[in-house]
Computed example of a mutant assay.
Amino acid sequence: MDKSKIAILSTVNNFLLYEKSSSLYPFKIQSYVFDGRNGMFGIYSILYMMKIFKNKEIDWLVLMDEDALFIDSDLIYPIIDKMKKDNYIIAGVRDGGSLPERSGSPYAMNPFFSIINFKELKKIWNKKEMLKNHYINEDEFNDDLSTLKYPFNKMSMSEPYYCFYFWLKRKNQKMLYLEVDLPFDDDKITNVVYDLNKKAILYHTWFSREYGDIRGRHTNRIDRVFNVFENTNDSVTPNKIYKDSLFPLKNWFRRLKKNLLKRVMKTGFFSYKSNVV
């Protein structure tokens, strides 16, 4: 495996937490950061990812939130081998049904941790086509959901990034869903992600935005998870930190356009015009 073609991407909202978690990243793997403090995350991070990395020599891209910490980072490599052998486009955790914190779509993944066959994704990438897939048809997908432990909603459209995963499924791309569990009796939020042999890859604590906030209830809980084992490694210096400085302005115009369109539709302007024509 050519590790020079593997990269880790973190969309970071809390750099204090990133300094701790990045120290556990795989050795000598290139690392990149998107500065998400201006609200750029989720589907917008995915779109930015495809724009920034389209010409980079990256075959495999690992998405890793700053509130996730590796237990054994080397376990990503057998997953990549499996994905390459069996033609999976992405591996990750279902957003609904796998965890008590998430009851959305069981067909989509939560992007806190994913492994993407980026080389193949670039071959099929079509931004406009992907964005048109933000809808769900009843019983459209035939996933076996019988083993899911927690509530989910097959018709959920709760996250804007669902269109990315629905688009992949409608393109007949294979998605490898990883198992998760709750590893601590006194913490019903943090989860552990397993590899294909039920070995623990990482912990995910959630609520990175509240870390370091003395008013928040999550700082002490997250610290307890990070202190499960002693870490003497230095934090990773990313190959590059990217920031879309215009994102807040573009997002403001995007919301304005959406609200204006809703108002126009509510007034019946288009139906009136169509009747005239």
Rank of each mutant, 00 (worst) to 15 (best):
P100C: 01
V276F: 04
Y194R: 08
S98G: 09
Y107I: 01
I43V: 06
E19M: 09
I71Y: 14
F270K: 07
F53Y: 07
F207G: 05
L168T: 07
N87G: 07
D59V: 06
T267N: 12
D223Q: 15
Y161A: 10
V236N: 10
K154H: 13
Y18W: 11
G216C: 04
L24P: 03
F253H: 12
S10Q: 08
G42F: 13
V33Y: 04
R102Y: 03
I52K: 07
G92H: 06
Y272D: 14
W206Q: 09
F27L: 00
S274N: 10
D234N: 10
A91D: 11
I136H: 08
M64G: 00
E179Q: 14
P26A: 08
G92A: 02
F184A: 10
E120H: 07
K174V: 05
K128G: 08
Y165K: 05
I136E: 15
E159G: 06
M64N: 09
R224W: 06
G36R: 03
R215Y: 11
Y165M: 08
K56T: 03
K240L: 03
L131I: 15
P238N: 04
K3N: 14
F27W: 00
R263E: 14
E179W: 08
N227T: 11
L69G: 01
T237I: 15
F53K: 05
N172F: 13
I6Y: 10
L196R: 11
K240I: 03
